[in-house]
Nucleic acid binder design. Structure first.
Lengths: 344, 344
DNA sequence: TATATTTACGCAATCGGTTGCGCTCGAAGA
DNA sequence: TCTTCGAGCGCAACCGATTGCGTAAATATA
């Protein structure tokens, strides 16, 4: 039984109440110039008739949708999907839709996505940059048109926007300090692409920790990959363990490469953590599955998403705010067996 | 430098070419009644002026958007996020947006999401059901209004719609056969909520395999959980291993519980696979990280997403098609160490 | 009582495409 | 030469909500 009955519009409600559509429109959103009783009457009838607002019409008129665009590298990564989960939850509570587009870490694709989202007239944008991206002009279109843009995690210092991040420097410092406290003397680092500030800062934190403990920095132990993929982790570990004077610890800028390191080392009979302590970053699910469990730094991924969404909504609701703030969330050092050289 | 220049519309193009807006509108989409030269002229000018179509206006007129809604349980699960990745890729290539909403496996939330998406005037819907869902009326609104609905993975037999699935029965059969071939005699099963057909069918496949090999079915080995969470996997394993006559193999309907089983068993000194062979389902990333690596059944998650998106787009483009087809994709048995009792 | 405010609401244009129907003109057929 | 027909394009009414401006009535102020 098809029931293609026409949708109820504010016109239907207006004529039934013998008022104008504008009054209905205003009443529905508690406009100050509409009388108390009128507002009640309109809302009551709207409810009875099953009125559902046509956001598209409103969007057309206002030339802006209540949709938040999200640009990320890959959806199917633990950190990203958790973050999106947070965004979706928060946006959904505010009556906003979330539309996703992935760059696959390609700069070209990111630009194309930005154009597409702009053409979709999104009301706000949340971005975690592609690995490749080094230029940021493709975001100016949004800023010029007062569309709030919030960057999360993979941000850029060149951009003067709202940001939701963690203190990567402090986290790198903390992680490396932990390794030092465990008695590690030669600590290697798997860094990500160094133009991406999150990786740069983790590396800086690592270096700073060594410096503070007067540990000489051996450049041959400071590696930097591109994607920190399993393959890269494998290659890097192979390389390190073949050195005449191999490291006794690795601090990897992500869990993926760290897990690869553990697998490679175990395969070659190297005891973890006795011979080689391994520390990751992200607290991905795999960090709990690998044997021994991987010490790592936890990102509050879901919260970062929620907060980013809140920032977007805040700007949407208070157009007056121009300030761009950077919100820094706490990370947590999660110590597991892969770095526990000392019993406690 | 703000450049809030007004957007180019078809009216601008029309007046500049001294034709009517309708002609421009038609020319831009190669309408048959528009002359070849006119089409060229319009497109050329549109390109020059940087015209970008206002989808919102079109959506308002057509009362339908080019956005595909996706209803899933949780974004941050490997299978789901991979599927979404596929959907996004395919939709994006077709110029469609993808909006996500998660039910968190709650029936109530799923209904709310359906309403919200319907109110957003989505042009198509892709659904993977919440674990709780047992009634399906909340989808009839879409069907009644000719909005294509495609179910993926977690489908229902009660629904006469397009579906993209795998053959769960065959997969369960295949997985269990493999365990039997490895010499397992007492094979337990971790099933999911049995009203969700994917889990029911996996269980059926498992039972059928036993039957075909004349293995008596021991009801005490056939467990069914709710979510197949790590905790459930833990409890179920604990229970099984405490039986007077414990199983020598477990076929879990997902990798999460299977991994828990391995962890629990290892912790209690039970050799995998010698004493207990473990088979999972999904080929989640963790299946490769756990030691020993987990044998499992692989889902073509990304492809399922792509195909689901294609189905939606097909219906959108050819309104005439009413047939509802069920597309069944191949699964693959991935044999790893966790079930290799016999050397090959 | 006359004037200034406030309160409460209506008018009508607007957002940018879409589409059914109608019109024109040149070419083909009778 | 007259009719028919199709190719090619214009008219104008939508789609549903928003909003600046105007106004009438009610209330406050002088």
């Amino acid at each position: 039984m098809k029931q293609k009955k026409r949708e109820i519009t504010i016109y239907d409600i207006a004529s039934e109440l013998n008022v104008s559509p504008s009054t209905v429109s205003r009443a529905l959103k508690d406009h100050y110039s509409i009388g108390k009783e009128m507002i009640e009457a309109v809302k009551k009838l709207a409810r009875e008739r099953g009125y559902r607002p046509n956001h598209i019409a409103a969007s057309l008129r206002k030339n802006k949708t209540n949709t938040i665009g999200v640009m990320i590298s890959w959806i199917n990564r633990p950190f990203i999907s958790s973050m999106i989960s947070g965004i979706e939850e928060e946006a959904s509570n505010a009556g906003c839709n979330v539309i996703i587009s992935q760059s696959h870490d390609s700069f070209e694709q990111e630009i194309a996505n930005a154009r597409a989202l702009y053409n979709s007239r999104i009301g706000g944008l949340i971005v975690s940059l592609a690995m490749e991206t080094r230029k940021y002009n493709h975001f100016s279109t949004f800023l010029d048109n007062d569309i709030p843009v919030v960057f999360v995690d993979r941000v850029s210092d060149d951009l003067n926007c709202d940001k939701v991040v963690i203190d990567n420097f402090a986290a790198g410092l903390m992680a490396t300090n932990h390794l030092i406290e465990q008695g590690c003397k030669r600590i290697a680092h798997f860094g990500g692409a160094q133009h991406r500030s999150i990786y740069k800062q983790r590396a800086m934190g690592y270096l700073e920790a060594l410096r503070r403990h007067n540990i000489e920095i051996d450049e041959s132990l400071v590696l930097s990959g591109e994607m920190l993929s399993p393959e890269e982790g494998h290659r890097m570990t192979e390389h390190l363990l073949s050195l005449p004077n191999p490291p006794d610890a690795i601090f990897s800028a992500n869990d993926t490469a760290a897990v690869s390191a553990i697998q490679y080392a175990k395969h070659h009979g190297i005891k973890i953590p006795q011979k080689l302590a391994v520390m990751g970053f992200n607290n991905d699910p795999v960090s709990l599955i690998i044997d021994p469990p991987l010490s790592t730094v936890s990102h509050p991924a879901v919260d970062m998403g929620k907060i980013a969404a809140r920032q977007v909504l805040k700007h949407r609701d208070h157009k007056d705010i121009i300030t761009s703030e950077t919100i820094t969330l706490k990370t947590e050092l999660i110590v597991r067996e892969s770095t526990m050289k000392r019993k406690r």
